[in-house]
């Protein structure tokens, strides 16, 4: 008589599943980069209509910053070093002594940044950084005076922030290089 072999219950050993899962987990942990993009935000102006005249700007409200390819800086035809730019800009924008040479009011001030085609990008960004730093200092000071907290601590798009932004609008013009 043929006796049927008794089968044992087929069990898959699941104890190593955790190990496999851990291995995969560690792989994804290592490869994941939770990186945040940082940078200087700007808004480009709409393209210029060639027939339309650019709006008139009073000379005293315009701060012309020229940067050449060696990183030398001219501010309103006056050579300055990069480290002086920020303080000069703050003086120009806020104009505490009502100098007739400087901006009438902070919201009328326009900063024009012009470089050469050969200027390295890092020099251009350094200059833009200085301009941004000047505006940040001014906004922080205004925010502290009015609300007792720095500008960054204000709620985004709150009326308070809008007010500070209106006091010191960032009017930065990136001029096209000649040649």
């Amino acid at each position: 008589m043929l006796k049927k072999k008794k089968r044992e219950g087929a069990d898959i050993n699941g104890s190593s599943m955790a190990d496999i899962a851990f291995l995969l987990l560690i792989f994804f942990l290592v490869t994941t980069t939770i990186n945040v993009d940082t940078g200087i935000g700007m808004v480009l102006p709409p393209p210029l209509d060639p027939e339309q005249e650019p709006p008139p700007i009073r000379e005293r409200n315009l701060m012309k910053i020229l940067v050449n390819s060696q990183g030398l800086v001219l501010m309103d035809e006056e050579p300055v070093s990069v480290s002086e730019v920020k303080d000069k800009l703050i003086e120009f924008i806020s104009n505490p002594e009502n100098n007739v040479e400087l901006a009438i009011s902070p919201d009328a001030a326009i900063v024009s940044l012009k470089t050469q085609r050969e200027t390295p990008y890092s020099i251009y960004i350094d200059m833009l950084d200085e301009v941004m730093a000047a505006y940040k200092d001014l906004r922080d000071a205004a925010s502290r005076a009015n609300y007792g907290v720095p500008y960054d601590a204000l709620v985004d798009d709150s009326p308070q922030q809008d007010q500070i932004r209106e006091m010191y609008p960032k009017k930065i013009s990136i001029a096209e290089p000649d040649s």
């Binding site: 993009d37 940082t38 940078g39 200087i40 935000g41 700007m42 808004v43 480009l44 102006p45 709409p46």
Partner: peptide
Amino acid sequence: LQQAGTFRINYST
């Protein structure tokens, strides 16, 4: 970019 109308830019640093 100006011609395209994409005005919001960010210089990544």
